[in-house]
Computed example of a mutant assay.
Amino acid sequence: VSSLLPANLLGALPSKCRIQPDGRIVTLATAIIDSTESGYLLVRMNANGQLDTTFGSGGVVLEKNNQLPSDLALQATDNKILVSGIYDFFVDQGFFVHRYNNKATSVKETRLNVEAVRLFPNPAREQATVQFTLEAPLRLQMDLIDLQGRTVSAVTPMRAWEAGTHAYTFELPQMPAGLHWLRLRDEKGCAQVVPLTVAPR
């Protein structure tokens, strides 16, 4: 990956690699942008090792704003690329999932304007409570998704929430124990995802 770095980067630390069904190779790396900012790189190569110029900008996608990647996966249903990790915008921290199509455009889920999201108890067994703060009224829906991004259970339909702090308790369906995500999403498709560990019953 180091030989493919954009000119304005100090360096990159590759961490994950996945091979798509057509043989194309996707690599994820933490990007060191400067002394105060980091991000991540997605690089896709054809099966012959050449950059896939149909992906991103010449085969490379650079995401900035202190988004630190932790995992890379291929979505089982449509082979879209999933990148998860944490972000730190100095005044706001949280967990993100970005989803890319085969050209690294149009389907990336952007950060939702919801503050101070927390889940408790976590791990949870039969029910959990999500608490969050809105600076302005917003229509949101919530659902539980698995590690492949598939919906496991609908938590709330799309509905209006007033500005302020909310706490919403929901039941957990019969589902495998382990790590899942609670996804909050607005009508524009902007999403925020919070990890939820389901305990054995």
Score class of each variant (00 low, 15 high):
P6N: 04
A7T: 12
N8S: 10
L10T: 08
K16T: 09
R18G: 07
G23Q: 05
R24H: 10
I25G: 01
T27S: 13
A29D: 13
Y40I: 10
L41R: 02
G49E: 02
D52Y: 07
T53R: 08
G56P: 05
N66M: 00
N66L: 00
Q67W: 10
S70R: 12
D71Q: 10
L72N: 04
A73D: 07
L74I: 00
N79R: 08
I86H: 11
D88F: 14
V91I: 02
D92A: 12
D92E: 11
H98N: 11
R99I: 09
R99E: 08
T105V: 15
T105M: 15
K108W: 10
K108Y: 05
K108C: 06
V114C: 01
A116S: 14
A116I: 07
A116F: 07
L119M: 04
L119W: 04
P121G: 04
R125H: 05
E126P: 02
E126T: 03
A128K: 01
A128P: 03
T129G: 07
T133Q: 05
A136C: 13
R139A: 15
Q141N: 12
I145F: 12
Q148P: 05
T151S: 14
A154K: 13
T156L: 01
P157T: 00
M158F: 06
A160P: 11
H166Y: 00
A167Y: 01
P173T: 02
P173A: 04
P176E: 05
H180F: 09
R183S: 12
E187D: 12
C190H: 08
Q192F: 09
V193N: 10
P195I: 00
R201P: 02
